[in-house]
Computed example of a mutant assay.
Amino acid sequence: MQQDAGYYVIRKQAVPEVLLKVVEAKKLLESGKVKTVNDAADSVGISRSSFYKYKEDIYEFHDSLQGTTLTLTFQMNDEVGLLSYVLNLIAEFGANILTIHQSIPLNGVASISITIQVLPTTRDVMDMIDKMEKASGVHKVHISGRSATFA
């Protein structure tokens, strides 16, 4: 029976702790702060077998995004300067805005769709989304599309 190799995007708070520790162990190894898998596993408090079991199955979302386009969808209050804030935030994080679609606000709320290109210099997209969601008047940002960027 062939297993589906699909992917899911889930928030960090929903990821089991052992998987987050595997990511931390991989970072320790990549940075050279530790020399061996055993040292990395010990440092984060997991077994070597857990590390080897999951090391190919978990990675930080930002690392997998470079060279892709993402479509972000959300609702936003119809307030002066709020869309400008979001667009400036995207620029501040170093992503390239490809398209912007905004509906006419109904009951003071507009639906927004922004497609961005994630560049090698783009900072952590999940941090950007988190900062967007914390802005008063921006409601639940979703990644509704992802595709490869062709040069």
Rank of each mutant, 00 (worst) to 15 (best):
Q3L: 13
D4N: 05
A5C: 07
G6L: 05
Y7D: 09
V9E: 04
I10F: 04
V15C: 13
V18N: 06
V18K: 07
L19E: 06
L19W: 02
K21S: 11
V22T: 07
V22A: 11
V23F: 01
E24Y: 00
K27D: 06
K33T: 10
K35A: 15
D39L: 11
D39S: 10
D39F: 03
A40H: 02
A41K: 01
D42K: 11
S43M: 08
S43A: 15
I46Q: 00
S47R: 00
S47T: 11
R48S: 10
S49E: 03
S50H: 01
F51L: 12
Y54Q: 10
Y59Q: 13
F61A: 15
H62L: 09
L65G: 10
Q66M: 09
G67R: 01
G67F: 04
G67Q: 03
T69P: 00
L70F: 09
T71D: 01
F74K: 10
F74D: 10
D78G: 04
E79D: 04
E79I: 13
L82W: 00
S84L: 07
Y85I: 11
Y85Q: 08
Y85A: 15
V86K: 01
L87A: 14
L89T: 13
E92A: 14
F93S: 09
A95F: 03
A95N: 03
A95S: 12
I97P: 00
T99G: 08
T99Y: 02
T99Q: 06
S103T: 15
I104S: 11
G108Q: 06
V109L: 05
A110S: 13
S111K: 08
S113C: 14
S113V: 13
I114T: 10
I116S: 08
Q117N: 04
D124W: 00
V125A: 12
D127R: 08
K131Q: 12
M132E: 06
E133V: 10
E133K: 09
K134T: 07
S136T: 12
G137L: 10
H139S: 13
K140W: 02
K140D: 14
K140V: 13
V141P: 03
S144W: 01
R146K: 12
A148L: 14
